[in-house]
Simulated scan of single mutants.
Amino acid sequence: MGHHGWQGNPPGTEQEARRRIVEAATACLDRAGLARTSLSDIAAEAGVTRQTVYRYFPKLADILGAVAIAGVEEFAVRMERHLATFGSPAEVAVESVVFGVRAVPLEPRLNLLLEAGEGEFFTGAVTSREWLALGARILRNVPVDWASSGVVADEDFAGLAEVLMRLFLSFLRHPSTPPLSDTQLRDLVGRWIGPSLAS
C-alpha cells in the first residue's frame, strides 16, 4: 500500500487512510466551504498527493458523501427520538419523510449533499448502500408494531427505507410550488403511503 507523504505518519490500513482523507476534507470544508474546497486542498491538508486521494476517492463527490456519512450518526439519533413519538408504522413512515425534508438542509454535513449542485451526486449518495442501511436501522429502532404492517424481515425494512428516502429526496430536489407546509406535506405523503402500512 503506497504511503507517499502522510506528513511522515503513514496509515497502517486502507480504512485508516480513508478516514484521514475524510478528516482532511472535513477540516477544509469547515474552513473554506464547499465552493472553495478542491481535491488539491484536501490532499494538501492530508499531506499526500492528489493521486493518493484519487486512489481512495476517485471524485470529490465520493469524498463529500463520506463526509456526510461521517456526520450522520447524531442526526440519526435525533431522527429516531423524534419518530419514537409516533404510534403506528404509517405515522412513522410519513413523519420520516417530513423530518428528512425539513432537517437535512439545516445539517452542516448533510447539507453538503444539497450544496453539491445538480447531477447524480445527491441521488447517488442518499441511495447508496450505506445510507439505505442507515434508513433501515432507524426504522427498525422505532418502537412500533412493524409486524402488524407486514414489515418484518431485513429486506422489508430495507425496501421501506429506500422508498421513503427516494421520496424525501424528490421533495428536497424538486420542491412544490408554492412550497408545502409541514401539514400539507404530511397529508400528501400520508394519503399515498399510509394505506400501504395500515394494520
Rank of each mutant, 00 (worst) to 15 (best):
V92K: 00
C28W: 01
L134Q: 03
A136F: 04
H82V: 04
R20P: 08
E120I: 07
A24Q: 05
W192C: 06
A84S: 15
F168H: 15
E95N: 13
V126E: 07
R78Y: 03
S40Q: 14
V126P: 01
G117M: 10
G5V: 06
H82A: 11
R55I: 05
G190P: 04
P89N: 02
E80A: 07
R191Q: 10
V67R: 07
A93Q: 10
N111V: 09
V97E: 12
S196Y: 13
P58Y: 11
L83T: 01
V22M: 01
V72Y: 04
A198R: 11
L113M: 15
R102D: 14
V151Q: 02
L29I: 06
V152L: 04
D154K: 07
A25N: 05
G65L: 11
I193L: 14
T37K: 04
S40M: 07
R19M: 04
V92I: 07
M1S: 13
K59F: 13
E23A: 14
R140P: 11
V101I: 14
A25P: 05
A198T: 12
C28A: 08
S199C: 04
E23R: 10
A32D: 15
L167F: 09
A136E: 08
L110P: 13
T123P: 03
L169S: 13
N141V: 04
L39C: 09
A27H: 03
A24R: 05
E80G: 00
